[in-house]
Computed example of a mutant assay.
Amino acid sequence: MLGPTVDVAIGLVFTYLLFALLLSTVLEAAAGWFKLRAARLEQAFAQLIEHPEAVAEERNLVARWLSGLGHGSGTAKVDKAASTATLTPEEAEAATERASGDLGPSFELRHEDIYHHPLVGGGGSSRPSYVSAANFSSALLQALRAGASGQALAQVEESIDALPPGRLREALLTALNEAQGDWDKLKAGIERWYDGAMDRLSGQYKRYTQLITFILGLVLAVAFNVDTIRIVQRLYAEPTLRAAMVEQARKTVEAGAPEASKAGDLPAKAAAVEQARDDLLRNAPVGWTAPPTLTLAQLASVPGWLVTALAGMLGAPFWFDLLNKLINIRNAGPKPESGTDLAKGKGK
């Protein structure tokens, strides 16, 4: 029958909604505790600003550890070869020439020069989680002017010409050429480059956070025994449980879309995590009746935990919208045999 099937779907989606809220709340608390956004922004600055040799050195760090480099008298020579291994031919040639002194003096711009600028605010204990393109451009131009003498635009041109060959130098030269001597156009060009670069880095960060979200979701699914298969089985077998979850789901939809707490202080975030946990345990057929052990019966729940973790990645807004649609479908259909009067007066 359609009635019980829809009710089971409502109960399952409602469970996913509660689980996704718990997952997002825990992620928000973890981001605040470990300052993940601020750390990611500083890493993004390092990728944008560092010259090719520094970037290549970071790329090859793990490779050098695995191959046992870094020991013995020949380390410096081998490290230099490794540092140019992942560069473009032009960048590798420039790095070799610089090492032999053929290029003469160069202007090295480090990401700390921008990150610790007052307009960015990365100095001391303060670590920003967002920097506008306008502030970044102003900080970068001031750092470039510090490496040369003369008028402002001439200072910037001199510093850009002295930068080591690489993506940063090419991007700044492009902005400089397009500006054609106009300071405001140069600043606008740097802002466009910064926005585009941050969009690409944001994509990388999103893929990274998706992996973290899945791992954390799986941990929470196991910790609270949110087994999708077991939940469906119980909802089909227990009409009373099914009716209670449908009623609670209806009240949740009527109350409006719930959101994960974004409170700034850590105690508030911890309280939000506890509230989300209690909501899940109180309203859904989850949790452990006894301390978990590695028995064959419990290992059979692994597929259900995996499905729950994947469902949590879709986010609470997705599940709330789906829950709202299911509630509307249920209210538009015939009154179910459970004896509830949720659809009374709403049938077509």
Results as ranks from 00 to 15, higher is better:
W319Q: 00
P128E: 09
D341S: 11
G345P: 10
A31L: 01
P4Y: 05
D227N: 09
G196I: 04
G150R: 09
A63K: 14
N60T: 15
E178I: 06
G333S: 09
N60I: 07
A54N: 06
A263S: 10
E274H: 07
T25N: 02
S100M: 11
M245L: 09
P317H: 11
E57D: 15
A237Y: 10
E178W: 08
A175H: 06
P336V: 03
T86V: 14
F320S: 01
D341K: 14
G122V: 03
H117W: 11
G70I: 00
W288R: 06
A29Q: 06
S67I: 06
K35F: 11
R234D: 13
M245G: 01
V131G: 06
G217W: 02
A85Y: 14
L103S: 03
K346E: 13
M198R: 15
F214Y: 14
P105K: 05
E93D: 15
L176S: 10
A343E: 14
A300H: 10
R330T: 01
T75A: 12
Y194E: 11
S106D: 12
R277L: 06
Q210I: 02
S132A: 03
L310G: 12
A284W: 04
D227R: 03
H117P: 06
F45E: 08
A162N: 01
F34I: 03
K325D: 13
I215Y: 10
I190V: 15
N328P: 03
Q47E: 15
W288Y: 07
